[in-house]
Design a protein around this nucleic acid. Structure first.
Length: 583
RNA sequence: GCGCCGGUGGUCUAGUGGCAGGACCUGAGCCUUCCAAGCUCAUGGCCCGGGUUCAAAUCCCGGCCGGCGCACCA
């Protein structure tokens, strides 16, 4: 049964323009998909809904950064190193294994990933390591260096290497020094981005669930680790299904049905920001059509977490009995901003003012350059820097007649009186803080797939099998179909007029006069169009039309003049179809 | 990347070393006063390359693509 839905969905997606493999005319290429007319509209609606909730409703700002960035960005982010896999193929059984993992498992080396390839090859030979699958010796087998990032060159030649971003996040982190200005140097503030990311996956699989180019919707929330707090009262009553790490590791562990408030109170979710976003996400996912019975939040196990995350929860949806990750909620700490501060020339901090200015004692130097200059020549400035460092680190060094300064390979004695050493009282209004980052990161393609999968329905209408998509009106690619009951010039004119009026209202409308009325209803059912409007001969007399609801196939007679308003209210969820009064 | 299986109109599928069939869909027409009805007509196909052969969509080899398993998934 479960496999049938995926297969039927794939077939439907191809046939009705939701999504299909790209470049089919050239044999297709693995891991790349095109969203067809329906799919692009659905995806766009999902992105709009995300933007409404996570950017606009939260008061955050959205940016749109390039997908290609220069190499130093990824040196700083750690992706050049950690996105790099060392694969070694067993000469006997031809299985591929992670060379660094084998080394870490079998030797005392703990961070083989960061070692150069030739060194890892030497270690394998030296320790006579064997294939985990068949036990054959791996000595002499070549290690293939594989980086999951797509590489390119910026400008002519290969002088400036660049990479397609493997996550949208770096585009936000890199621009932090300017973005903080827009936030008026005030924490917390959030920056969102919806955009493409690229990973040269070894083995793309399972339709649009694992592709090489995909869309992420990410929020980077920059918080003061000491003072910023979410308003948990907004989400404390939200019911969630959690799968904490402790339950995953227990023999009889199970998912936990609880509320955000209780999970925070009993420590299941340690970080209040993570808890806040899990609550927001739970309700948002439900609003766009994820079946909450096939949805949970799973905590990462310690060994599973990324190089930056201190705690991480995934949102997972159930597809054919398998749980797939559709979002990650990570506490990235100050990892990203600190790394960019270290690797770049910019300051990735926000000045946080104290409630009360603090008075602190500080050791300072004010060297006598008329002494240091002649004494050290061109090295005088470096000596000054050494003195400054030393003063901050070790005041006692300045207590004697002279102070010892390590410089070059020698120790120099400098009279303390020439250093201008003093301990001063200084008033500090605040401090430069590297913000911590809370990152809710959503996979849009997987969400679209989940929505379609969870919306897939088969039932029976008038003795005939029917397939329909139970899509939420807010995200349905086509909102309303408009038909003349039969081929008839007068009916067609009236129906086309209604279609135009609804389009003018901003609704997504499809007009169809082919075949018979039943066929047209089924066509719209199959792509998930929530409502259909049919113009009949009475419409020309009494100004009413039949409006038919997708899920129930119920029909109501409603006045044409009110249609734009009525249907807009239905789309916004302001009224329910069953509550509408007939004419 | 390795292994197994597979690739036939838009979709699903039958089939064989000798003229490639069906169903659905789609389009045109007829019919039709609310749920894939019926009739007529039409469009459209053997993944790519090489080999074997008188003849290859079919057999063989390689590639590409897909499903599944392994590995991978910061």
């Amino acid at each position: 049964m479960s496999d049938r839905i995926s297969e039927k969905l794939t077939e439907l997606a191809k046939r009705r323009g939701y999504f299909f493999q790209s470049s089919g005319a050239y044999g297709g290429v693995g891991g790349f998909y095109t969203f067809g007319p329906q799919g692009a509209a659905l995806k766009g609606n999902v992105e709009d809904a995300w933007r409404d909730r996570f950017a606009i409703a939260e008061g955050h700002m959205e940016i749109d950064a390039p997908t290609i960035m220069p190499e130093p960005v990824f040196e700083a982010s750690g992706h050049l190193e950690t996105f790099d896999d060392m694969l070694v193929e067993c000469p006997e059984c031809e299985e591929s294994h992670r060379a660094d993992h084998i080394v870490e498992d079998e030797t005392e080396y703990e961070d083989a990933e960061s070692l150069p390839v030739p060194e890892v090859e030497e270690i394998i030979a030296e320790y006579e390591l064997v294939c985990p699958t068949c036990g054959a010796g791996l000595a002499g087998a070549a290690i293939e260096d594989f980086n999951l990032m797509f590489a390119t060159n910026i400008g002519p030649g290969d002088s400036q290497p660049g990479y397609l971003r493997p996550e949208t996040a770096q585009g936000i982190f890199v621009e932090f020094p300017r973005l903080k200005e827009y936030a008026r140097n005030t924490l917390p503030f959030g920056v969102t981005q919806i955009g493409r990311a690229y990973r040269n996956e070894i083995s793309p699989r399972r339709s649009i669930i694992r592709t090489r180019e995909f869309t992420q919707a990410e929020l980077e929330l920059f918080v003061d680790p000491e003072t910023s707090e979410p308003d948990l009262t907004l989400v404390e009553d939200v019911s969630v299904r959690l799968y904490p790490a402790t339950e995953q590791q227990a023999d009889d562990g199970s998912e936990v049905e609880t509320t955000i408030g209780d999970a925070v109170a009993d420590g299941t979710i340690a970080d209040p920001w993570i808890a806040y976003f899990l609550g927001i996400a739970q309700e948002w996912y439900a609003s766009v059509g994820v079946d909450t019975d096939r949805f949970r939040f799973r905590q990462h196990l310690a060994g599973e977490r990324s190089h930056y995350a201190s705690d991480c929860w995934d949102a997972e949806s159930e597809i054919d009995g398998n749980w797939i990750e559709i979002a990650g909620f990570a506490h990235r700490g100050d990892y990203d901003l600190s790394k960019h501060q270290e690797y770049s020339e910019e300051r990735f901090t926000v000045f946080q003012q104290y409630d009360e200015p603090k008075t602190v004692e500080r050791a300072v130097v004010d060297p006598d350059m008329s002494y240091l200059g002649p004494e050290f020549g061109g090295d005088a400035q470096a000596v000054v820097e050494e003195l400054e460092t030393l003063a901050g680190r070790d005041r006692a060094a300045f207590e004697g007649e002279t102070v010892d300064v390590e410089f070059g390979d020698e120790t120099h004695e400098i009279p303390v009186e020439k250093t201008g050493f003093a301990v001063e009282e200084q008033t500090e209004a605040g401090e430069h803080v590297v913000p911590h980052v809370i990152e809710p990161s959503f996979g849009v393609d997987r969400l679209v797939y989940t929505i379609l999968h969870h919306a897939y329905r088969e039932d029976e209408v008038a003795g005939e099998e029917r397939t329909y998509l139970d899509l939420e009106p807010e995200v349905a690619p086509t909102f309303v179909g408009v038909f003349p009951l039969q081929s008839d010039d007068d009916l067609e004119d009236e129906a086309e007029g209604i279609a135009a009026a609804l389009r003018a209202e901003g609704l997504s409308v499809t007009y169809d006069d082919s075949g018979n009325i039943g066929r047209r209803y089924r066509r719209q059912d199959e792509v998930g169009t929530p409502f259909c409007v049919t113009v009949d001969y009475e419409s020309l007399e009494d100004g009413g039309v039949t409006v038919r609801e997708r899920d129930t196939t119920d029909q109501k007679r409603l006045p044409i003049d009110d249609l734009p308003e009525t249907l807009s209210a239905l789309r916004a969820g302001e009224v329910a179809f069953e509550d509408l009064d007939e004419e």
